[in-house]
Design a binder for these strands. Structure first.
Length: 967
RNA sequence: GCCCAGAUGGCGGAAUUGGUAGACGCAGCAGACUCAAAAUCUGCCGCCCACAAGGUGUGCAGGUUCGAUUCCUGUUCUGGGCACCA
């Protein structure tokens, strides 16, 4: 009987579906376990082999936990709002709802082919009104809450209003508050709401009349059309994530994320302790300007080393302080900066800047310090201005050097004049009252004096900024907000969902508003329950809105009364294992942590961290293949290793100097032309579909039929008539023709082979290029496993012979088969527990190799192996399980228990090194002590040879590890 | 530029806590079976030298150690993120 994987997999997938095998209940006596994959965006390109890497890992772990007796939640759904669908709609006119539906259907059929154990009844889609109703509802919770600084948690905004009405606050009395107009009150509350609106900058493209995503801006111009892009201020919604900065930091201590992941989040939050210092400004023409410059610094101890100030060019202040003769230069520089993205600005190595003509006065020694503007200072961080200390800060140092600003050395010999030294250990010089003080102590002294003289104050600062929450787009959640007289009015929860209206055109609205602004009968409404006219918010929510809370919806996916029943969220609690890429390190993970904390504060859920353990999957990169088109003859494609020769031959036929030259001249020309690098430049590298290439060998026929323009091309192959392609590792993407469809591999080798091969490629956490070639090896392994049960001619060959009680007892009597089995149980369990799925696959290979070597066909042994294999290759395991005559499903079998007694050994082949270099092996009993070992080792022939009669200085013996003789 | 990660044979990788570098698989080479092929099986397979013995070897340069792929310092290159791709 043959291993007919296609039949087997189809049969069991249908069987499992019909039997509701993956249905998960919220009620169970078993302990719960929640395994979650990061929410996929259903792109039009479908699934490629890079996507399922994490899904297979999570599926294996889910099935493993199920076998171990857990009630496992392992859901899947789609983050179906997003820019690409809208972009596609603009290009093709197809409605995003339609294309999204189609894409999801493709994704689901691809996922199902791989045999995942999802409970599809729990599927969620962020673009369904039944889902985004609750996204909008949570937005309203954020909008109607504020962060109480004393309790360090979110509270209903009404409590703040009550406080203002009765007690007022430090800025106004209760009476004052009560006398404010509605608009004035609203403005004050807006400063506290967790979801709030203010003016912010966007990438504005005048030519396209639209706001662009950072992604759509390349080198300062729009990706489509190459039009100029500049910053524009627009009213935007934000989430006050900065209020939660400390709790987001503290929460990291309670979760199992990798240290690097936590580090990235900490750096993103960027908490620093320092001081805000205010400087008086004097103008270059010496007439006092009545302006103050406030800088933020983490190093107040270096105050006497300040040689210049740098202000973010976009600060208003710049206009007020610039001197008349620098005015034109300043404006010119600001225009340049406006055209640059934040990323460009930060990535820039070139030093740019402009002197404003103004000077700041050092409050301690009265020194006048020039004020510059430069793009390396960002308006959003700190006060948007820094005091530059070139002897202590590298970037300041380079700036000073570039613009010839004299450098004051306050750290004596610590500064060598060649590069800045950010030390905190130096004893200060040239530092007025701080002279001779250690920098770490000076910090406190300066802070004290700053506060005493009211020229500065201690300040904790965060690099993190509030999260922009508006998108000038169509395909997203509409905001449940109506604007009236410049004041936002929130819809009542009962009015949700506010459905996304249908549109036929996706172009931007006036003034850079989103497409919704064009639907006048939708935007112009009366405030609920009144006749006051209002206008709906026309922007939509960003991609991360829906994905910030989806893990909760899976627990209670069809509830129409609430976003997630408290009983359900209490039962499933945190996600026990979350698998996804590091590209979400800061964005998605911080946002969902924020939402969870707010929902917790408001009492809707019982925990404030969503993900208990995070496992990062690596990226699978594409391995692209190239063909080489000869530039001199565009109809000719030359194989990789023939490029040089072909070009030389062409040259000999076509270069008149060579043809007519003498033999000596020919030699000289040949010397010049005979250069491989140069001849390779004579070819265009053209991406070719990797599916036409076996390893590096091109299927010439398929290539010629790929595109009409290739039908009649000339192919110059290698000497063995094959065409060898070039290769490069790139991102896996349709446009490089390097995507591989998992469904194709499932059809050709089976889902079980595909699953195991993806795992076999390497550690889940590692990034690696995809290469289909090795899949054969895994497939051979499964066929070899099959042959332990079936012989092609004889049919079933398993036996019901069982090990004797003595063999089962372990020790010396245990037989080879039991040893193999229990060694495997131990390793598979350990490897699976530590997510080392690649070594688990090789353990299975070793197990099957060894069982085949000792011709083990015992049902009792093989059965146990099948259970171990079930999480990895469920279809073949279920098939063989039933072939052996078992009634129930292997998915719910009892997981084998490792018996250490079976693996006990009495001796070991020890490696013996001389001075750390391996020279020989000696078999030693495991219970030997140092003295016995020394004696035995010294008797050894090889050891004696190296000793040359001398006595060793030392013999190191590490039990069960090794012996090292030091001479 | 800043933050994070990675680098081991022709290739993917293994070595779980500082203790035999290269498990397992791919590719390759040689052989068995076969009319032949496929499938399967056996053996070889880091590099240098080669009869052996040996030398050398985990991106690069140093260091700690009896012993370093593993720890430390520096450095190069590659990948991810940098706030509107998801």
């Amino acid at each position: 009987m043959e291993y007919k994987f296609n039949e087997i997999e189809k049969k069991w997938q249908e069987h499992w579906k019909a039997g509701n095998t993956y249905k998960v209940s919220n009620q169970s006596d078993k302990p719960k376990y929640y395994v979650l994959d990061m929410f996929p965006y259903p792109s039009g390109a479908g699934l490629h082999v890079g996507h399922p890497l994490g899904y297979i890992a999570s599926d294996i772990y889910s099935r493993y936990k199920r076998l171990k007796g857990y009630n496992v939640l392992h859901p899947m759904g789609f983050d179906s709002f997003g820019l690409p669908a809208e972009q596609y709609a603009i290009e093709t006119g197809q409605h995003p709802a339609e294309t999204t539906k189609k894409n999801i259907a493709t994704f689901k059929s691809q996922l199902d082919k791989i045999g995942f154990c999802y409970d599809w009844d729990r599927e969620v889609r962020t673009s369904d009104a039944s889902y985004y109703k609750w996204t909008q509802w949570i937005f309203l919770q954020l909008y109607n809450s504020y962060f109480c600084n004393t309790q360090q948690k979110a509270l209903p905004i009404l409590e703040l209003v009550k406080k203002y009405e009765t007690k007022g606050c430090s800025k106004f009395t209760a009476d004052q508050w009560n006398s404010y107009s509605k608009n004035e009150q609203e403005e004050i509350l807006m400063n506290r709401r967790l979801a709030f609106s203010k003016y912010g900058e966007v990438n504005w493209c005048e030519a396209l009349g639209t706001v662009l995503a950072n992604d759509e801006v390349v080198n300062g111009v729009s990706e489509r059309g190459g039009h100029p892009v500049e910053k524009k201020k627009m009213r935007q919604w934000y989430l006050r994530i900065t209020a939660y900065a400390d709790r987001l930091l503290d929460g990291l201590e309670t979760v199992e994320f990798s240290e690097s992941m936590k580090e990235m989040q900490r750096n993103w939050i960027g908490k620093s302790q320092g001081a805000e210092i205010t400087f008086k400004i004097v103008n270059g023409e010496s007439s006092m300007v009545n302006e103050l410059l406030t800088v933020y610094t983490t190093r107040p101890d270096t105050i006497f080393g300040v040689d210049f100030m740098v202000v973010a060019p976009e600060l208003e202040l710049v206009q007020q302080i610039k001197s008349a003769d620098q005015s034109a230069a300043v404006d010119e520089y600001i225009a340049y900066v406006k055209s640059r993205s934040d990323v460009d600005r930060m990535a820039e190595k070139k030093i740019t800047g402009c002197f404003t003509g103004a000077y700041a006065v050092n409050p301690f020694d009265g020194r006048q310090i020039p004020v510059w503007i430069s793009e390396y200072v960002l308006a959003g961080y700190g006060t948007g201005a820094i005091m530059a200390v070139p002897c202590g800060d590298e970037r300041d140092f380079k700036f000073a050097q570039h613009f010839n600003i004299p450098i004051t050395n306050i750290i004596g010999t610590y500064f060598n004049g060649e590069e800045a030294n950010p030390t905190k250990e130096a004893f200060l010089e040239n530092s007025g009252f701080l002279n001779g003080m250690k920098m770490t102590d000076a910090m406190e002294a300066v802070l004290h004096k700053l506060e005493a003289n009211a020229i500065g104050k201690r300040k904790v600062n965060y690099k993190m900024r509030d999260a922009g929450f508006s998108r000038q787009r169509y395909w997203g959640e509409p905001f449940p907000i109506i604007w009236s007289d410049g004041v936002p009015v929130a819809l009542d929860a009962a009015e949700l969902p506010l459905e996304l209206p249908h549109v036929d055109k996706y172009g931007p609205g006036p003034e850079g508003e989103g497409p919704l602004a064009n639907i006048t009968n939708w935007i112009n409404v009366e405030l609920p329950g009144t006749s006051v006219s209002g206008r709906r918010e026309t922007s939509t929510m960003p991609g991360y809105a829906g994905s910030s809370w989806y893990f909760l919806r899976y627990m209670d996916p069809s509830n129409s009364e609430t976003f997630c029943n408290r009983k359900a969220s209490d039962y499933w609690n945190q996600v026990d294992l979350y698998i996804g890429g590091t590209e979400h390190a800061v964005g998605h993970l911080l946002y969902s942590r924020l939402w969870t904390k707010v929902l917790f504060d408001l009492g809707y859920i019982g925990y404030d961290e969503p993900f208990k353990k995070l496992l990062n999957q690596g990226m699978i990169q594409g391995s692209s293949r190239f063909v080489y088109r000869y530039k001199n003859e565009p109809n000719v494609f030359v194989s990789k290793e023939m490029r040089h020769e072909y070009h030389w031959r062409w040259f000999c036929k076509n270069d008149p100097d060579y043809i007519n030259g003498s033999d000596i001249e020919k030699e000289i020309i040949k010397d010049k032309v005979w250069n491989k690098e140069k001849s390779n430049d004579k070819y265009d590298e053209i991406h070719v579909d990797v599916n036409f290439v076996d390893g590096f060998k091109l299927d010439i026929d398929k290539f010629k039929h790929w595109k009409p323009e290739y039908n009649n091309v000339t192919i110059i192959p290698e000497n063995d008539m094959s065409y060898i392609c070039g290769s490069e590792t790139e991102k896996m993407s349709k446009r490089y023709f390097n995507t591989v469809d998992p469904s194709d591999l499932c059809n050709a080798y089976g889902a079980d082979t595909f699953r195991m091969y993806e795992m076999f490629l390497g550690p889940v956490e590692a990034s690696k290029p995809w290469d289909t070639k090795g899949i054969e090896g895994v497939h051979r392994f499964l066929r070899k496993l099959w042959r332990l049960f079936f012989d092609e001619v004889k049919g079933p060959i398993w036996t019901t012979v069982a090990p004797s009680p003595l063999e089962r007892a372990g020790g010396e009597a245990s037989n080879a088969e039991l040893k193999v089995l229990h060694k495997t149980i131990k390793r598979i369990e350990e490897d699976t527990e530590r997510f080392s799925f690649n070594t688990a696959v090789s353990t299975f290979m070793i197990c099957v190799n060894e069982l085949a070597d000792i011709k083990c066909h015992k049902k009792e042994m093989l059965e146990q192996v099948l259970i171990l294999l079930t999480p990895y290759a469920p279809h073949i395991a279920e098939e063989l399980w039933h072939q052996l005559g078992n009634a129930g499903s292997v998915l719910d079998a009892t997981y084998p228990v490792f018996n250490p007694a079976l693996l006990v050994e009495s001796s070991k082949e020890y490696p013996v090194s001389i001075n750390g270099k391996l020279r020989t092996n000696i078999n030693l009993a495991l219970d030997l002590e140092q003295a016995d070992v020394e004696k035995l080792v010294l008797e050894n022939e090889t050891v004696q040879k190296w000793l040359e009669g001398k006595m060793p200085k030392k013999i190191i013996y590490v039990k069960n590890k090794m012996v090292n003789v030091v001479i």
